[in-house]
Write a protein that binds this DNA or RNA. Structure first.
Lengths: 165, 165
DNA sequence: ATTACTGCAAAGCATTTGCAAATGC
DNA sequence: GCATTTGCAAATGCTTTGCAGTAAT
């Protein structure tokens, strides 16, 4: 195997995330009697490489050719594992296909999605989490996680609509 | 056409919802140069008849035979229209297939979904909506709607797990 | 050596769509 | 009468799966 494959040239910041996240995934895999494989490292690296929000299928396409080839099936399987490991989060809301984002080094936040242009805008408000936690308590519900998505029109799009239409 | 088909025997409360919701759908259809058809009335009636939360496919199956037959394609098409009309709301979060609920006579609320048994628990907290509205304002985002889903373990299931497991 | 993982391609499955017949306007 | 809608069945497209070969432990 070539050296390029073993360690890609990545922007420092991304490399740092990968370097921190990968050992966590390794721990998770070992705890679950699963194996630490090439393919899993490549998928994790790709997830942390260029994606704020991405869908499984696009990721699979990106890895379908070139040096770091990983098959579609394996990408889906690995994303599921990463989700279990808490390294990735699904946002299966807007479209037919699942959208993900990585959660490592990425503080808790929610999303607004523009109906027009499809852009994802991140926002956070810790009071939201608190309110949800207290609602859960009221209903004797043990929260594992929650998801908040706001649908509407982003600033850019409604400015365009007001201005020119 | 038989009289039974023209007006089903429904519990009073449900009939009341249908009687209120149907004219709204009719208005919506007329405004959009769409036609007021048998199939659309049957789907709307079915939606208001037995479902708190339901998935499109189940609804389609229920209407696939019997007197009030409506084809699968039409059910999907009609649900999309009802969503546009604001009579139905999607909760496309938990599963591969879309879950819906009707919104008419059903005050704004959110959902907790049990990982174990899949139960939907409704809850509401108007402060959540207020926080989201103000976050939207901060980001110059025009909110159309939002969705909050909490995942975890319901009271029944974690009591079982604690008690017997 | 043993067992898990990967790649591939085929299967699954919810949803969408094309088209001829039916229906609302 | 004309345009939309419906039903049917076939197509679509994301995701999952079976299996034989490959890699990790």
């Amino acid at each position: 195997m070539s050296k390029a494959q073993e360690r890609q040239e990545l922007p420092e910041e991304i490399q740092a995330s990968v370097d921190e996240a990968w050992p966590l995934f390794v721990d998770f895999l070992k705890e679950n009697q699963a194996r630490v494989t090439q393919a899993r490292r490549i998928v994790l690296t790709q997830v942390f490489s260029r994606h704020d929000h991405f869908c499984a299928d696009d990721l699979a396409s990106e890895l379908s050719s070139g040096l770091n080839h990983v098959s579609r099936g394996t990408v889906y399987r690995t994303l599921a594992l990463m989700e279990e490991a808490g390294l990735v989060r699904v946002i299966r809301d807007t479209d037919v296909h699942a959208h993900y984002e990585h959660t490592f080094n990425h503080p808790s936040h929610e999303h607004m999605i523009c109906d027009q242009c499809g852009e994802f805008i991140e926002f956070s408000d810790e009071n939201l989490a608190l309110l949800i936690a207290s609602a859960s308590r009221r209903h004797d519900f043990q929260e594992r996680t929650h998801r908040i998505v706001v649908f509407g029109t982003c600033e850019k799009c409604h400015r365009q609509a007001d201005g020119t239409a």
